[in-house]
Simulated assay, not measured.
Amino acid sequence: MPSTDDPRPSLPEWITDAYTVLSDRIRDSDRGESVDRVPAIRREHAVDVLRTTDELELDPGDADYAITRLLERGYFYEVDGELRITLPAEDP
């Protein structure tokens, strides 16, 4: 879940829960991958993940809405149909 000092606008808790589920899945899928590969998840797979996780009960429309809101608010960005985690800038 984003921290309280996160510069991104806040979202409803169920959408930040969706962010946690997807970002964990993206990070977990990156383990053992090539160094050149950017951690990502296909948007269609992300919808499936949100629909089948035990942590949330979302229908396809709600899952897609959550992903859209996370993209609009800068939590993820999309490249060629893949969602990637947008990390807040680190303080120097």
Rank of each mutant, 00 (worst) to 15 (best):
E90I: 00
P7C: 07
T20M: 08
A66W: 01
A89K: 08
D5H: 13
S10Q: 13
S23D: 10
V35T: 09
F76D: 06
R42W: 09
P2I: 00
E82A: 07
D28N: 13
T52I: 02
D5R: 12
R84T: 00
T20E: 15
D80V: 03
L70D: 11
P60F: 07
S23M: 01
L50I: 01
D24E: 11
L50P: 02
R84N: 03
S29H: 08
L11R: 08
E55W: 05
A46F: 01
I26N: 04
A66E: 07
G61N: 14
L83A: 02
E33G: 01
L83I: 02
T53D: 07
R84V: 04
S34H: 12
R25S: 13
E72Q: 14
V21I: 10
L70N: 09
P12K: 08
I15G: 06
E33K: 07
V79P: 03
D17W: 05
F76R: 00
L50T: 02
P88E: 15
D30N: 10
H45I: 10
Y77F: 12
T86E: 15
L87C: 00
R8H: 13
D48C: 02
V47E: 07
D5T: 13
E57F: 08
V47N: 03
E72P: 01
D6S: 10
F76A: 04
R43K: 15
D54R: 06
V79A: 11
D17V: 03
T20S: 14
D54E: 12
S23R: 03
R25K: 12
A63F: 03
T4N: 14
V49S: 04
T53K: 01
I41P: 00
A18N: 00
D91H: 14
D17P: 02
P88R: 13
R69V: 04
S29E: 12
L58F: 08
R27V: 08
T86H: 12
P12N: 11
P88T: 13
S23Y: 06
A18T: 02
D17N: 07
I67D: 01
Y75L: 01
T52F: 09
I26T: 02
V49F: 04
I85R: 05
E57P: 01
R43D: 09
L56S: 05
I67N: 05
E55P: 01
R42G: 10
E13G: 13
S34Q: 10
G74K: 05
